[in-house]
């Protein structure tokens, strides 16, 4: 399988190996140590590390700068970019900035609404949407052109990803929506955290039936639960999250001090089960403020050691 970019993530996926990615949220301050430590913690257990872009609309160190920090350590960042905060000029400009540091992966997102964050009275931009951002990066990369039509002297070489939430409503358009993102040019998908495995498998099955899994690499998103409280919070408070009652019951059935272990075990079991699902090409492990557990999850799920690729 040929690859279109120097992305390590793309190469691993192209080789047919299950890929493993994880993510790190930048700090609310200018100290780079936090990012570097988290990167160091997971570097041998994942193929690429997403850097979130002002997630939940809370102002943080910018995703691009944090990606550069990882890059300087020799790691493989995935630049998350939301369309909430930048117009098409800023987005294209940041893509070129990332390219200048050989950042080869991008994840195109619309972003949580600003009302969730620390600047609820701010404006949002939404000049283009996440699908149009996918189109933009592909145009910049494949045609070497800006949206305005001019040639780019040294086009970015980025492996283009997006998120999908198989659990958001309405369910019947979730597969058509994936098809739409593929038509826009997406090459890999990282999904929302999966707790409802049956629903996820149904989504992948429908995608498979339409031949979509041949056209895009789906990385199944998993997040270990730390406690039953977190499970309930995810179920009730996080929009578009599907946490079935039996997961909550299972967490609640163990004593509080054992709940983190149970959460890790559920996460490992989820990966084990989804590994054999045709069309799932890897895992995106979002251990929220729990990066130290990523290694354990990867090892217990039999995804270690990670493959090495020529860059």
């Amino acid at each position: 399988m040929t690859t279109k970019t120097p992305s390590k993530l793309e190469k691993i996926l192209a080789s047919g190996c299950l890929a493993v990615t994880s993510e790190v949220g930048p700090p609310r301050g200018g100290n780079p140590k936090h990012i570097e430590e988290k990167g160091r913690l997971i570097q041998h257990h994942v193929d690429a590390i997403n850097i979130t872009d002002n997630q939940t609309s809370v102002t943080r160190m910018c995703s691009l700068a944090a990606c550069i920090r990882l890059k300087l350590m020799g790691l493989e960042p995935v630049l998350q970019m939301v369309t909430r905060d930048r117009n098409r000029i800023a987005l294209q400009s940041d893509i070129l900035g990332a390219a200048s540091f050989d950042i080869h992966n991008i994840l195109c997102l619309s972003g949580d609404h600003q009302s969730f964050g620390d600047c609820p009275t701010g404006q949002n931009v939404h000049d283009i949407d996440s699908m149009q951002l996918i189109q933009t990066v592909r145009r910049m990369r494949d045609e070497g052109k800006f949206l305005g039509g001019a040639d780019i002297a040294c086009p970015p070489r980025m492996f283009v990803g997006a998120a999908e939430n198989p659990f958001a409503d309405p369910f019947e358009i979730r597969v058509p929506r994936l098809a739409k993102k593929i038509a826009a040019g997406v090459e890999f998908i990282q999904t929302q955290c999966i707790y409802n495995l049956d629903k996820f498998e149904l989504w992948v099955k429908q995608a498979r039936e339409r031949g979509l899994t041949e056209k895009v690499h789906i990385l199944a998103g998993v997040t270990p639960l730390k406690s039953v409280g977190m499970a309930r919070y995810m179920k009730n408070r996080v929009p578009g999250m599907d946490v079935p009652d039996d997961v909550i019951k299972r967490m609640a059935a163990v004593p509080k001090e054992k709940q983190p272990d149970e959460g890790i075990t559920i996460c490992v079991e989820t990966i084990e089960r989804l590994k054999s699902v045709e069309g799932v090409h890897g895992f995106h492990i979002m251990a929220i403020e729990w990066e130290e557990k990523v290694a354990e999850i990867v090892e217990r799920a039999g995804l270690f050691p990670r493959p090495t690729v020529e860059i």
Binding site: T83, S110, H126
Partner: peptide, 13 residues
């Protein structure tokens, strides 16, 4: 709320 032309976003519930 995000004037998304290719929606819905993942927050539709």
């Amino acid at each position: 709320a995000k004037r998304i032309l290719n929606g819905p976003c993942g927050g539709s519930s």
